[in-house]
Amino acid sequence: MITFDQVSKRYPGGIDVLKNVSFELAKGEMAYLSGHSGAGKSTLLKLIAAIERPNSGTVLVNNQNVSKLKSDALPYLRRNFGLIFQDHKLLFDRNVFDNVLLPLQICGFEYKESAKRVRAALDKVGLLGREKSNPIALSGGEQQRLCIARAIVNRPSILLADEPTGNLDAEYAEEIMNIFNSFHQVGVTLLISTHDAALLRETNLRIIELKQGAIQPHSRYAADLHETEDA
């Protein structure tokens, strides 16, 4: 589903954020992307959604070379993704319902069909009762769940989440991971970046660890991670 082949990324005037990164994520797979902040996790996710372009190497999504895509094809690529941002990127000039409606408006859905889908997505993340609220009135955990609702309303085949549990306490974080697990069960491909050690320690999922822009070869499983964390 997602293939990185020898991908390097350097921001203008900066150091190499990613160095020769290669990995593959199978269809329907759920994996963590771990590493300290500044390790290149966000950049890697941005390369998948073609928000950034690599300096060298190829990024394939559904066997499409994302880095060679023309800019007018980008919107249609991005509709395959559900993006969950670290800073949520919610719009505070409209209510919860309209925030979730936006992706469907972009894809040109009929309003009636859209409203049904929006309510289903809000129900999934437990925000159905708050649809008339302004997102500013929501707690951090609720805002994160709203962001998830917006990402899934379009029924994407790939979910990319950047630090979804970043500023949440353990209880909220678990709630959100349960939501992700339910998507995993229905066949959605998920890549979740996190530096939450507790979360990584408990999981049986594959972990791709980035360290200073390079993938750590021995850290494919949780057990390996503990060693590097302790080191």
């Binding site: 959604a49 007018d72 936006l102 972009i106």
Partner: peptide
Amino acid sequence: RDEIQVAKLIGATDAF
């Protein structure tokens, strides 16, 4: 600005 950025990120065409 915010709306435009978010819309672009979630697949809005320039025409939209």
